[in-house]
Structures are given as C-alpha cells and as structure tokens.
Amino acid sequence: MTVAQKRIRAAGCVLWRRSAADGGLEIALVHRPKYGDWSFPKGKLKRDEDWLSGALREVAEETGMRCHPGTQLPTVHYMANDRPKEVRYWAAEATTGTFEPNDEVDQLLWLPPAQARSVLTQDMDRDLIDALLDALHEAGRG
C-alpha cells in the first residue's frame, strides 16, 4: 500500500441521552461548517492513539460532552480524498458537559432517532442509528 493509499483511521460515537422533558431518547448530531454536513462526532486518531480513546477525545472536542462508552457499533468504510477511511463507532451515553461552538463544529442538535435519521447528511450514518437502538434494546435501555 502506497502512502497515497494508506488507510485513514478515525473514531467517534453515536452520543445519546434521555430527554429531560419526557425521558425519550435523543441523539447528538454535529454540524461541521467546513463540510456543510450533519454527522456524529468523530475524527482522525492521533499517532499511537487507540480507537476508543480517540472516539472519546473527539466527542469531548466536538461536543464538550463527557460520556460513558457502551457497545461498539458497526465500522464504516469509505473513500476520502482518494484514500480508504475506516471509522469505528461506539454507543455512548452523555453524562456531563456544555457545548460551545468552535471552528470545527458550529452547532450541536439533540434529536429523537427518527428526526436525527432525517437530518443526517450521509446515508451510511443512518444505519448507525439502527445499530444504537438495537444495542440499547439488548442492554434493556431502549
């Protein structure tokens, strides 16, 4: 594999919480102005960083949230700038924190699953909502 083909390693979380208003499930989506898209918090791993540590760091950087990681969700593969990219995701319950807009992420939305599914930019991300719902159901939290 040449340098141009070297796989990009990234990680993130499908961040969730219970609504204070009705106890319903809410999923966090971030808006990245550079790409004009809505996605889950995620980003490239630092050198020698493990996948889960990278996912938790990215959640904190992009959302200001601390979270409790749960089940690993499906890995997403796609091409980015002519290089293969692998993004590993975890289900993660938000515990504390406050969002502050920054250069990388200018908006954070907490949405019910059906609404989150309709707002996500990439079709491949929608499957991760189903995987989260399945994981929470299996854990007796769904």
Rank of each mutant, 00 (worst) to 15 (best):
Q5D: 15
R9V: 10
A11G: 04
L15N: 03
W16G: 02
W16M: 06
W16K: 07
R18V: 11
S19R: 00
A21S: 10
E26Q: 05
L29I: 01
V30E: 06
R32P: 05
P33M: 00
P33W: 02
D37R: 14
W38M: 01
W38K: 00
S39Y: 07
S39W: 08
K42S: 14
G43R: 05
G43K: 04
G43A: 03
K44C: 11
L45C: 01
R47P: 12
D48F: 14
D48T: 14
D50S: 08
L52Y: 09
R57D: 04
E58G: 10
V59D: 08
V59R: 06
E62K: 04
E62C: 01
R66P: 07
C67V: 04
H68V: 11
H68K: 15
G70M: 05
T75V: 12
V76S: 07
H77L: 08
Y78W: 10
A80S: 13
D82G: 10
V87M: 08
W90Y: 01
E93G: 09
E93C: 13
A94R: 01
T98E: 15
F99V: 06
P101C: 02
L108C: 06
W110N: 04
W110G: 02
W110R: 01
P112H: 12
P113H: 13
A114I: 07
A114Q: 13
A116H: 05
R117Y: 00
L120Q: 03
D125M: 02
D125G: 03
R126W: 01
D127S: 15
D127W: 11
L128C: 02
I129K: 01
L132E: 03
L133V: 14
H137D: 12
E138Q: 15
A139Y: 02
G142E: 09
